[in-house]
């Protein structure tokens, strides 16, 4: 048995991983989520804002991390739209602009048709330059963004007329999948201008543990990976959309089902691997 496990073709492990995610999805396995302190902190930070407060929605993610970030992104938009905040979308991550368009179409246009583009929300688009973009727009937005993503002059967009830089925002919400992302917003926006605005964010699992040193002084709260997304999603939908039938507001919680089974599998594989290792070691010693 030990020899069999030792020589086990890794493709069987791949199959086990595939099934451990596939079966919960087919069975729509779902578990209750209780919010932890971090998700609560993010929720509270947005709750503090009043109707009409400007919020920068920095969408720095792409389809590769949609699995973890899409639920939190949609929940952020739902939360801000429900509170009637003024949403300014932009991206310093190449495909983030596209993600913002998708979220606007899926959330705002469907559930908040009364919100008007240019008055309640605007998509400024993507600019390359990584952290260089942040460095410029914290002082001068129009230098890099003379128009929005549709080519309309910012001075002709009612909600942009009095916005000169990111310092005019009350809060920055960053959804980040890598570089540039939440770290850069901390380094070039919330650290040098800590008294002007707060920063909250959501990021992938890979980044989440790395952002803890910034909490809470430089980063008021963060949603880490799909768990954070599921917790925040349940907080937002409980308050603002408790009867919603829309599946897009349940994605985070739905994706936690496979997490449980797959985590069990991971733990099982590690234990099994070590059993094989110790058995072979004792055989070798014998």
């Amino acid at each position: 048995m030990i020899d069999f496990l030792d020589k086990l073709d890794r493709r069987w492990i791949f199959l086990a991983m595939g099934l451990s995610v596939l079966i919960p999805i087919l069975m729509k396995l779902q578990f209750p989520e209780t919010a932890t302190a971090q998700s609560q902190a993010v929720f509270e930070e947005i709750e503090k804002l009043k109707e009409g407060d400007p919020v920068l929605m920095a969408w720095d993610w792409d389809p590769a991390s949609a699995g973890e970030l899409e639920p939190m992104a949609k929940s952020f938009v739902l939360h801000c739209a429900s509170k009637k905040l003024k949403m300014y979308f932009l991206a310093i991550y190449p495909l983030g602009n596209q993600m913002a368009d998708n979220d606007i179409a899926d959330v705002i246009k469907v559930d908040f048709p009364d919100l008007k583009y240019g008055e309640d929300y605007v998509n400024l688009g993507y600019k390359p330059g990584y952290e260089g973009v942040i460095k410029v727009i914290v002082n001068n937005l129009r230098e890099l963004y003379p128009t929005d993503s549709r080519g309309t002059n910012l001075d002709q967009i009612p909600m942009c007329r009095n916005v000169n830089s990111v310092q005019d925002m009350k809060l920055i919400i960053n959804v980040s999948s890598g570089y540039p992302g939440i770290k850069e917003w901390v380094q070039y926006a919330s650290t040098p201008y800590k008294h002007k605005f707060k920063l909250v964010g959501g990021c992938t699992g890979v980044q989440a543990s790395l952002m803890y040193p910034y909490i809470p002084q430089q980063l008021a709260g963060q949603l880490g990976a799909i768990k954070g997304a599921a917790e925040y999603e349940s907080l937002v939908t409980e308050k603002y959309d408790p009867d919603s039938k829309r599946e897009i507001y349940k994605e985070g919680r739905r994706r936690m089902g496979p997490q449980l089974i797959a985590h069990m599998l991971m733990i099982g594989l590690i234990i099994l691997g070590n059993i094989v290792y110790f058995a072979q070691r004792s055989r070798g010693a014998a």
Partner: peptide, 13 residues
Amino acid sequence: GFTVMGRIALLAI
């Protein structure tokens, strides 16, 4: 631990 969570979510979607 967090990375594993991330990877699995990518597969799930």
